[in-house]
């Protein structure tokens, strides 16, 4: 079964074809229009999606060497609703025109399961850390559709903190890759930024205090070099992320860990995971950590294989808890 997947939930316009052999095509157009705004502008994102989505879908079909897939799936949420609607409706139109099954995919499920697309893939159950500009959540993935939230952020997402810190430092947008690159050249112990702890017994994160601490440091008389600030900030974020992953692994007895989301492309986080010997880590390539359609097509295909489809009356959802 060849499945076409379409993803337009934020600022990437993407389409992909997958089948039992793996990814046949994976086309992503990354919108550049948001850079000068320091963040994704929903109306600009939606306009850019409708400009590109048809050409991106056509390119995915061409690269896969097919004229018509056996099913069409698309991200139906969560995300920027005006952006989600573009890909979702194109997918519905395509499926109806081809007279093939249609399914709406939860974007987060795409990230959760993206490691299953790789040759070296984890067995169930596994821990999945989804960490991006919109999400910072650790799931226990028990089976397809059975996900338990073990930890999540109570305020900013980790990627959001990266973007805000980068903006405060005048490093541009998106901030994650720039901070990551500078951090590699800096001293992670130069500034002692706080590692906010969860409430007793909990595993949740909070990143807004860390962001404020960076701001206070930037305004202080003893401001460190940019590379040192980035390295110290990144070390704090990674300490927070890793401490919860380690605790969750100890509590659940599950050693297999996968990551997804834009911050999963962060080299500091990837290195920290790989260095943790008691974890069995599965890292998707960086291109499959950021938003892409292969993960959507893949998650959709797994559900289609279980006999699931959606009615064409399916609504887009700005918020959608994965697994519900």
């Amino acid at each position: 079964m060849k499945v076409l997947g379409v993803e337009t939930s934020c600022d990437e316009t993407a389409a992909s074809v997958v089948d039992v052999t793996g990814v046949l095509s994976d086309i992503t157009y990354s919108q550049q229009v948001h850079a000068r705004f320091g963040g994704v502008v929903p109306e600009l994102a939606a306009r850019a999606h409708v400009e590109k989505v048809g050409a991106v879908v056509q390119a995915a079909l061409d690269e896969a060497g097919i004229e018509r897939p056996d099913a069409v799936v698309a991200t139906a949420g969560p995300g920027l609703i005006g952006a989600v609607l573009v890909g979702l409706n194109m997918a519905k139109g395509l499926a109806a025109g081809w007279d093939v099954p249609f399914l709406g995919v939860n974007h987060l499920e795409g990230h959760l399961l993206s490691a299953l697309l790789e040759e070296r893939r984890p067995e169930w159950p596994f821990l999945s850390l989804v960490v991006s500009g919109g999400h910072t959540t650790l799931y226990l993935c028990k089976a397809l559709g059975e996900y338990e939230v073990l930890a999540e952020t109570v305020d900013d997402a980790a990627g959001e903190a990266y973007d805000k810190v980068a903006r405060m430092m005048g490093l541009g947008y998106p901030g994650g890759p720039v901070v990551d690159r500078l951090a590699a050249e800096g001293n992670p112990e130069a500034v002692d930024f706080p590692r906010p702890r969860p409430k007793k017994g909990g595993l949740d994160w909070s990143f807004s205090g860390l962001k404020t601490a960076v701001r206070q440091h930037l305004l202080s008389d003893e401001r460190a070099a940019d590379a040192d600030i980035c390295a110290s900030f990144q070390a704090a974020v990674i300490d927070c992320l890793m401490s919860r992953v380690n605790k969750a692994s100890a509590r659940t007895g599950v050693r297999r860990v996968v990551i997804g989301g834009g911050v999963a492309a962060n080299s500091g986080l990837r290195n920290a995971l790989l260095k943790t010997r008691h974890l069995d880590v599965y890292l998707p390539p960086k291109s499959r950590c950021t938003d892409n359609a292969a993960m959507i097509a893949h998650a959709g295909r797994l559900r289609l294989l279980q006999g699931q489809t959606d009615d064409f009356a399916l609504r887009a959802r700005a918020s959608w808890v994965v697994g519900q």
Partner: peptide
């Protein structure tokens, strides 16, 4: 309406592409 136009055009484009 911005969103309305995009919903209509993306649906129509999907149908026309597939047909």
């Amino acid at each position: 309406a911005f969103t309305g136009l995009r919903v209509g055009i993306s649906t129509a484009a999907g149908l026309a592409m597939a047909i």
